Simulated assay, not measured.
Amino acid sequence: MKSTDRYAVQTYVRNRRGTINPGRGIACKNADEARRKAEQSCSGRADIGAAAMLLRGDEYLGSTEEPIILAVFGVCPPDVIDEIPF
């Protein structure tokens, strides 16, 4: 099977101890929608940050590559920020 590209947003929340944790994941149709939804998710009270990403892999075999970070908004964990390709 050939590799497929999927776009998603990972939101981040801060717990009571101040640690940044993953929030909800949002599936998107394309890169522009992922960037837009990531930016919009940070405007509310629940999410402190979000990352738009490209996910590549073979869904049939369950093999995936590391996510490619397209954009980061708000406060995200350092490991996510370090993955930005620019």
Score class of each variant (00 low, 15 high):
Gln10Gly: 09
Thr64Val: 12
Arg35Thr: 08
Glu83Gly: 01
Ile68Leu: 15
Ala51Lys: 11
Thr19Gln: 07
Leu54Met: 10
Ala50Tyr: 03
Ile81Lys: 15
Thr19Ala: 11
Gly49His: 03
Cys28Asp: 09
Glu65Pro: 08
Lys2Cys: 06
Asp32Ile: 04
Gly57Cys: 12
Ile68Met: 09
Ala46Gly: 13
Glu65Ser: 12
Ala46Cys: 11
Leu70Tyr: 01
Arg56Trp: 09
Ser63Cys: 13
Val75Asn: 04
Ala51Glu: 00
Asp32Tyr: 05
Pro85His: 08
Ala27His: 03
Asp82Ile: 11
Thr4Ser: 11
Asp32Ser: 14
Ser43Trp: 12
Gly62Asn: 00
Phe86Gly: 01
Val13Pro: 08
Arg45Trp: 03
Glu65Ala: 12
Ile84Thr: 01
Pro22His: 02
Ala8Arg: 06
Gly49Trp: 06
Thr4Asp: 14
Gly49Phe: 07
Phe73Arg: 10
Glu33Ala: 14
Pro78Asn: 03
Asp5Lys: 12
Ser43Lys: 15
Asn15Pro: 02
Gly25Arg: 09
Met53Pro: 04
Ala8Trp: 09
Asp79Val: 10
Glu83Lys: 06
Ala46Met: 05
Thr11His: 09
Ala71Cys: 07
Tyr60Gly: 06
Glu66Tyr: 02
Gly57Asn: 01
Arg36Pro: 07
Ile68Glu: 13
Val80Arg: 05
Cys76Asp: 05
Val9Arg: 12
Pro67Ala: 11
Lys2Gln: 02
Ser63Pro: 12
Glu39Lys: 15
Gly74Thr: 01
Ile68Arg: 05
Lys2Phe: 08
Ile48Lys: 11
Ser41Phe: 01
Ala8Lys: 07
Glu33Gly: 10
Val75His: 05
Arg14Phe: 11
Glu83Pro: 00
Arg24Trp: 07
Tyr7Ser: 09
Cys76Gly: 05
Ile26Asn: 09
Ser63Val: 14
Ser3Asn: 15
Lys37Glu: 12
Arg45Met: 13
Phe86Lys: 07
Thr19Gly: 06
Gly57Tyr: 02
Gly25Lys: 07
Ile20Asp: 04
Ile69Pro: 01
Thr11Pro: 05
Ile81Ala: 00
Asn21Lys: 14
Thr19Leu: 05
Ile69Ser: 00
Phe73Asn: 08
Glu66Ala: 15
Glu65Phe: 08
Asn30Ile: 14
Leu55Gly: 04
Phe73Thr: 03
Val75Ser: 13
Ala8Pro: 01
Arg35Gln: 08
Glu33Asp: 11
Ala71Trp: 01
Lys29Leu: 15
Asp32His: 10
Gly62Leu: 04
Met53Asn: 04
Val72Ala: 03
Ala50Ser: 10
Ala27Leu: 06
